[in-house]
Design a binder for these strands. Structure first.
Lengths: 354, 354
DNA sequence: GAACCCTTCTGGATCGATACAGTACGCCGT
DNA sequence: ACGGCGTACTGTATCGATCCAGAAGGGTTC
C-alpha cells in the first residue's frame, strides 16, 4: 500500500496536518520538525501529497484543457494550429500550469461529451469547433472559465473571446481580388458542406455554414464581391474534408478542369491554398498570371512559396487565450480581444487575364 | 454553490449512491428512476460527477503526462517532436484519454519537480530529457507507470522502454562516411557541452555527455570512426544550444571558416543538418561534393532538401509509447520495444574530395 | 500576576465522489 | 408456509488531502 500523509504522520509521531504543512506551508512549523518529516517521508517512499486529492480539496487542478475536434494528430499537421498551440503552451508554462489536450472523437458525440465532462482542468480553450458540437454545451454546463476563438449565440457574459475579425480579414482579401479585376471567382474551404467530401458545396449563403471560422470568412468574401457587383450566386464554393494540402489540390482540380475556369481562387487556409498552387503547376498554369490564389493564416510555407495571404498572429492568439484563461479579468470588456490581421500581397495574385 | 450528487439526490428523494449509479452504472437502477434523476440534474444545472472527486475515488485520472524539457514551445518547432507527439496523441485518442503536456522549466529545477509532483495523470511518457534532471527522480518516486525513450542506470524493472538503437543507427551512418573515404570529420549536436553555447565541445569521450540520445549517437559515430582507424581525438565536436536550423548554421561556421575544414559533418538531428547545408551554400560550397553532411531523424524537410540521414519512425515511437503506457504488458520482456532505423542515402554525401 | 500575543502543533470537518455490504420486497418452487 | 433468489435501492466507509478553529506553551507587556 502506498504511503499517505497519515503514514508519514504516524512514523514521525505528529498529526496529519503537520505533515501537510511540511509540504505546503513550511512557515507553519519549525524547520527542525520539517526536516524530520521530510526525512521520514523519504524513508517511507512518500513522494508528496497526492495531486488528485489535493486538487479535490483545493478546488483547482493546475491544468487547462484544450479541445480539439478533427483527430488530435491532425492538429499537429497544420502549422497554424501548431503556432496557436505554441502560444498557448507558453502561457501555460509561464503560469506553471499543464496543458491537457483533449482529442474529441468526431464520429462519437457521446464520447466527446464524456471527454469534456471527465477532464480534470481549471478551464477550457476552444479553438476550432463546429458551432453545433454537443461538447460545447457540455463545456458550458460545467461552468468552468472558457476562452473561445469563435462566438456563439449561446455565449453567456461569462465567456471570453480571443480572435480576429475573420470577415474583415477576408473582406480585404476579396477587395484586393476585385481591384485586380477578377470577376469569375471560387472559394475553397473546410466545413462548407456538412458531408466530409471533396466537391462543390451547395450553398445559398454563407450563413448556411455551421462552422464559425469558415462562415465568417465566407461572409467577408461575399461582401467584398458584392461591393464590386459580383453576385454570390456566381461564386463557386468547394468543400474540402480535411485542412490539408492534398485535399486542396483535389478541390482545385474540380475548378480547373472545366470551362470556364475561375480567374481567382480564394482558399480559407494556407494549407489548402498551397494545394491549389500544386494543382495549378501540375497543369502548367502560373499562379498570379493565369489564376490568382489567396490563402489565409500566413504560415511560414506561405512566405516560402510567395503566396498572397492574410496574416493572423497564430502564437499571439494562443498566448492571449491562455493568459485570459489563467488570469481572468473582472471586467467583461477586457475579456474580448480582437487581434489585428493584415493582407500580405505576394506573387500569387495579379491582374485578371483578359 | 454548485450542485453535487447530494443536491440532486435530495431533490429527487433518493440516496446519493443512486444518483451516482444513474451516471456511472445505469444497469443498477430502473430506467424510469434514472430518467427522473437525470431530469432533476438538468433542472439543477448539475453537469455530472465531478472529475476530480471521481479520479480520487477511482484511482485513475484519464490522462497521461508527457514531459518536456526545453520550453514546450520549442517542441512544436521540431518536426520530429511533432511526429512523436502525433503518435502519442493517436494512442491517447484511441484509449479515450487526455494528454497532459508538462512544460518543465529549464532554469528552475524545483519548479520542474513540483510540476511532476502535481500532475494529475495515470502515467508518464519521457522523451528527451537530460539524464541528470531531478524531475526524473521525482517521476520515479511517484511510482506511476513510465515509458521512456532513454535508458537510465537507475531504471527499475518497472519501467518500459520504447525507442531505437541510437548507437547502431549512427554506426551505420558513420560507416557510410568512412566507406566514402572521409577521414577529417566533425560532429554537431545539442547537449554536447554542459553550457548552452555554440562552439567546440571539449569532449574526451562520448561517455562525458550527460544526455542519453546525444551520448549514444556519438558512441555510434565513435565506433564507426574507430573501425576505420580514425581516432576520436581527431574528431571535432561542436555544441549547439538549441535544436534549430540557425544554430546549426552558426555551428557549421565554426568548422568551415578555418583550415583544414572537415570533409564530412555529421549532425545529430536533421534540423541542425539543414542549418549546416545553409552554411555550406552561403559559402558557395556544394553539399555532397565539397563537404558531406549527414543528419538524423528523416523529417519531411530532409527528403525535400535531399539530405542523407538516418530514418527513425517518429510517430510509431510516440504511438507505441502511448500504447505501452495505457495497456502495460505484464511480462517485462514486452516492455522493451526497439524500433528499426534505416540509413537513407541521398545527395548530401559523396566521396571525400582528394 | 493577569492579560495578551506569537509560534507551533492538533483534531475534526470537508472537498465530491465510488465501493460494497446490506436491506426490502416481490416472485418462484415445493 | 418457507427458503431461496433476483432486482432495486440505501447507508456507511473510504479515497487522500486541506482548512480552520483552537489548544498548549513560552515570552512580553503593564
Amino acid at each position: 500500500m502506498r504511503p499517505t500523509l497519515q503514514t508519514v504522520a504516524d512514523a514521525v509521531g505528529v498529526s496529519r496536518s503537520t505533515v501537510s504543512n511540511a509540504y505546503s506551508r513550511p512557515d507553519q512549523l519549525s524547520t527542525e520538525l520539517r526536516d524530520r518529516v521530510l526525512a521520514a517521508a523519504a524513508a517511507l517512499g512518500y513522494a508528496g501529497p497526492d495531486p488528485t486529492a489535493r486538487s479535490l480539496r483545493k478546488r483547482r487542478t493546475g491544468a487547462i484543457g484544450m479541445l480539439f475536434t478533427a483527430s488530435l494528430s491532425f492538429a499537429f499537421t497544420d502549422p497554424y494550429a501548431v503556432g496557436y498551440l505554441r502560444g498557448l503552451a507558453e502561457a501555460a508554462e509561464q503560469a506553471r500550469t499543464g496543458l491537457l489536450l483533449l482529442p474529441l472523437s468526431v464520429e462519437d458525440d457521446a464520447a466527446a461529451v464524456a471527454a469534456v465532462n471527465e477532464a480534470v482542468v481549471d478551464g477550457f480553450c476552444v479553438y476550432c469547433m463546429p458551432d453545433w458540437h454537443p461538447a460545447l454545451d457540455a463545456l458550458a454546463a460545467r461552468g468552468l472559465p472558457v476562452v473561445s476563438g469563435q462566438r456563439r449565440a449561446s455565449d453567456g457574459p461569462q465567456s471570453a473571446f480571443v480572435g480576429i475579425d475573420e470577415a474583415a480579414a477576408t473582406r480585404a482579401a476579396g477587395d484586393h481580388l476585385m481591384a485586380l479585376g477578377h470577376r469569375r471567382v471560387a472559394v475553397i474551404g473546410d466545413y462548407l458542406s456538412v458531408a466530409p467530401t471533396i466537391g462543390p458545396a451547395l450553398l445559398t449563403s454563407p450563413a448556411d455554414v455551421a462552422y464559425y471560422t469558415s462562415r465568417e470568412r465566407l461572409r467577408g468574401y461575399q461582401s467584398a464581391f458584392a461591393a464590386a457587383g459580383v453576385d454570390w450566386s456566381t461564386v463557386t464554393t468547394v468543400n474540402v474534408p480535411g485542412n490539408c494540402r492534398d485535399d486542396g489540390a483535389t478541390a482545385a482540380a474540380h475548378l480547373l478542369d472545366r470551362a470556364p475556369r475561375p480567374t481567382a481562387i480564394a482558399a480559407l487556409s494556407d494549407i489548402v491554398a498551397l494545394g491549389v498552387l500544386d494543382a495549378l503547376r501540375a497543369r502548367g498554369l502560373q499562379p498570379g498570371r493565369d489564376v490568382s490564389v489567396v490563402g489565409f493564416d500566413d504560415i511560414p510555407e506561405a512566405a516560402a512559396e510567395n503566396l498572397t495571404t492574410v496574416h493572423q498572429p497564430a502564437a499571439d492568439r494562443g498566448r492571449r487565450s491562455g493568459e485570459l484563461l489563467l488570469d481572468r479579468p473582472a471586467d467583461p470588456a477586457d475579456r474580448t480581444v480582437v487581434l489585428p490581421t493584415r493582407l500580405v500581397v505576394r506573387a500569387t495574385t495579379g491582374p485578371a487575364p483578359s
